[in-house]
Design a binder for these strands. Structure first.
Lengths: 199, 199
DNA sequence: GGGGAGTAATTGAGTAGCCATTCATCTTCT
DNA sequence: AGAAGATGAATGGCTACTCAATTACTCCCC
């Protein structure tokens, strides 16, 4: 029998999965704690044994996803064998694949997290900054290698890249068409690299 | 004496202004209809003589702002004397100035409009598409003039541009620092034009 | 130019519904 | 047996929206 800690963890995951599904479909304010509990197969009260509040569930969804996200991006950026351009392309592709493979999660990231300045600040202060810093490191490496234009502001460039990826994801979430989000990776990388490269 | 139609219109404007203020400060779900009424100096019920529902107030804020926005952008794009690059720079500057000059409105645009897929879809279907089309026309003109790379997808490029502007605005809204949003126009234009231009 | 009938606009207290959270009770583990 | 975990009905607070009552306009006639 598995340690009860592991079973508790699995139950928590089930609740988070249920919440992702419900919130993606009905929005944060349209989702009731009861509906999350029902889908997770637990009682309403049980949610409160695992989370402080409904908002804490939302924040936990963000934290879990962001951990995976940053973990994988870290890998790419830390790869000593790769050049800046290759890392750039891989990071763009990673961002678009992770969101593109889980539409419910993408909906939550692109739409539901932005509910209120309050929540957004709470979240963006922490992890998004880390993520931006990773992108900035790739840009910096490109400048160091002499392939990216030295006069561009590194952090500004990172925000530009993030903004483009974010818009691609939002557009994909809102559009009915069945393209794969990841298919945008190449043209988007081309366009952005065109702006960064020394011509 | 002004036709009563004009006074009604002025009252409607007052309510919208009050709503912008309240919603920017407390978020859409944190704002009560009562608080909007109080700030506008009318009774709760009066709101419902001018708007179908609370959501309709939000949508009306969007419609009013977007009309101004698109009107001014139209001007720039229709200017026959200007080249694509100049129009491009002017459009970028317009976007960042209009939002940068009214932080409350910017908060609503960057944060509050996104609270549910429902509202977002409602809105994005209509006006944002028009706006994207305007940007696309500038890109197309650049290709026609032979200064922008012909192989870039025009609509994709427009979305990229929009995404970058959107991210700049969100970043500005969330950051405490007191830079002017419009000061980003030049470096951002440079970066984007670098990606679009034939090198 | 003012009185007043008729209409339009406004008011705000009340209603109805919703839902996050709690906790006394029960079930399952060790 | 005792502890730990889970349950779900009940509670309390909140607020969008309604509507009967009131006030403000308009305009016509003297």
């Amino acid at each position: 029998m598995p340690a009860s800690a592991a079973r508790k963890e699995a139950k928590r995951e089930r609740m988070l999965d249920a919440a992702v599904l419900e919130i993606a479909r009905h929005g944060y304010f349209g989702t009731t704690v009861s509906s999350i509990a029902r889908r997770a197969g637990v009682a309403d009260g049980t949610i409160y044994l695992y989370f402080k509040s409904k908002e804490d569930v939302l924040v936990s969804i963000f934290q879990r996803a962001m951990q995976q996200f940053i973990g994988e991006a870290q890998h790419i950026v830390d790869d000593h064998g790769a050049g800046a351009e290759e890392k750039f392309r891989r990071t763009v592709a990673l961002h678009l694949s992770l969101l593109g493979e889980n539409r419910d999660l993408a909906v939550i990231f692109q739409v539901e997290f932005r509910h209120t300045l309050h929540v957004l600040e709470l979240l963006s202060r922490s992890r998004i900054r880390d993520y931006l810093a990773l992108i900035a490191r790739v840009v910096q490496q490109g400048k160091d290698e002499g392939v990216f234009r030295p006069e561009v502001d590194t952090l500004l460039a990172a925000k530009v890249v993030f903004g483009v990826l974010d818009e691609m994801a939002t557009d994909w979430v809102l559009s009915r068409k069945n393209i794969r989000l990841a298919s945008r990776a190449e043209p988007v990388s081309d366009l952005l690299l065109g702006g960064l490269r020394i011509s």
